[in-house]
Design a protein around this nucleic acid. Structure first.
Length: 409
DNA sequence: TCTGGGGTCCTAGGACCC
DNA sequence: TCTGGGGTCCTAGGACCC
């Protein structure tokens, strides 16, 4: 029988920061993204609250009051990438089937290997001594149960979930502990008396289908340990389906210029990422969130695929003009490129006029300069109209787009 | 207590064509 | 000219994950 491991690096960001700064070891550490530094509000308040040992929903200031020792440090994405890659290096000594799930989690397919628990314990011990980070591991015969095993006991523990013990271990857990049961599904299931994973496992499939669609049946299968999805190997990462960036601005966007500047900065980033993959996109989508937190999305298919900031910008601002509500205070804008296709080997079309070809060449040249001298060395003039709105840098953000992650491993 | 950002997938409704 | 059905594509929004 197949043995699958799921390894979760505990409290990853803060642990890595402690490795770089011994003086904060042993203290509660919260890694705070640049967003809350810019906004004064608290993106990472959950992290801060968790580190401070208080309930979430507190601001960093609140967390500091509750826990005067709390250390807030800025994020260092490069450090997390390096540690993540080192952990993956250890995993790959045991199998070539290692699938990342975010920056700090991986599945390992050990094949018919006999003693998954022994391997998991060995890997955890090595991570602890070589990286200085504790890990929790789940061992099971499928991916879902392996993942739930690593969540079962944290930190620094291994949990094995077998065909014999899964009912005893998992079925008594609250329904929200089931993977893919979020807030909305939890509410629906509880309304019908399904409060535990066991309730879900034994529910009427027709009812589940009515409540959650095909997802309902999938969840019931998972609760019964039916999951034959494979662990994708390192060398076959899933293809990228879309590339996007969004930003919550340091102040409400009020003028046309504010909006234009922000869209251009987003389109510069998205288009550069598209080109770094040698991709073009056939669809552009914008997200607009106003100060009442209402979100609208608008998308359009393009007559032919594009990859330059100018063309993305034209589509995004067109969508905004025709679809975004007027007279509202805008907090967040986002641009996403989808319907991706490879740049090379594409047939020239009627739309590939000389202007476009020149623009693409210019973009490639700017990419080269930015790669050599740093992000945002070459930008569009319009972004200088309001530098405070365009100076955000997706590459410094705490979150990890899959392709950036792959670049490190 | 829903706060930020990057993703994926699903669903429902409408347009359009045959 | 109208009506019905099937298939496909597009769009908007929601839900979920980290």
């Amino acid at each position: 029988m197949k043995t699958i491991l799921h390894v979760d690096l505990n409290n990853f960001y803060a642990s890595v920061e402690c490795m770089y700064d011994p003086s904060i070891r042993g203290l509660p550490v919260a890694v705070c993204g640049d967003v809350e530094l810019r906004h004064g509000i608290v993106l990472a308040k959950n992290y801060a609250a968790k580190a401070a040992g208080v309930k979430t929903g507190y601001t960093i200031a609140d967390a500091k009051r509750a826990c005067p020792d709390l250390v807030c440090v800025p994020p260092h994405m490069d450090r997390y990438m390096r540690f993540s890659a080192m952990a993956k290096g250890i995993y790959s000594e045991y199998t070539d089937r290692v699938e990342s799930f975010g920056i700090d989690e991986c599945w390992l397919d050990l094949g018919e290997h006999g003693d998954g628990v022994a391997v998991a314990d060995e890997i955890r011990a090595r991570i602890k001594s070589e990286l200085g980070v504790t890990a929790s591991a789940g061992v099971s015969y499928n991916k879902i149960f392996a993942k739930m095993g690593s969540d079962y006991k944290k930190p620094d523990a291994t949990t094995e979930i077998t065909r014999n013990n899964y009912k005893e271990l998992l079925w008594r857990l609250p329904i929200s502990d089931m993977m893919f049961v979020g807030r909305a599904s939890e509410r629906k299931l509880r309304l019908y008396g399904m409060n535990t994973i066991g309730d879900l496992a034994n529910a009427d499939p027709l009812l589940l289908c009515r409540l959650l669609g095909k997802n309902g049946l999938l969840l019931q299968n998972f609760a019964n340990g039916i999951d034959d999805s494979p662990v994708c190997g390192t060398y076959e990462p899933p293809p990228i389906k879309s590339i996007g960036n969004s930003t919550t601005s340091p102040r409400d966007l009020l003028t046309e210029d504010d909006i234009r500047v922000t869209y251009m900065a987003l389109c510069e980033s998205v288009s550069a990422r598209l080109r770094s993959h040698s991709m073009k996109c056939g669809t552009v989508c914008i997200d607009v969130r106003d100060s009442s937190l209402r979100v609208i999305t608008r998308q359009k298919s393009l007559p032919s695929p594009v990859c330059t900031a100018e063309e993305l910008y034209a589509a995004a601002t067109e969508l905004h003009r025709s679809g975004a509500p007027r007279g509202v205070r805008i907090r967040t804008l986002g641009v996403r490129a989808s319907s991706l296709c490879p740049m090379i080997g594409m047939q020239m079309t009627f739309f590939d006029d000389e202007t476009r070809l020149k623009r693409e060449a210019l973009s490639a040249a700017a990419d080269g300069i930015n790669a050599r001298f740093g992000d945002r060395c070459v930008v569009h003039g319009i972004t200088m109209v309001a530098p405070e709105l365009s100076s955000f840098s997706p590459s410094d953000d705490r979150t990890v787009a899959p392709e950036r992650f792959e670049a490190y491993v």
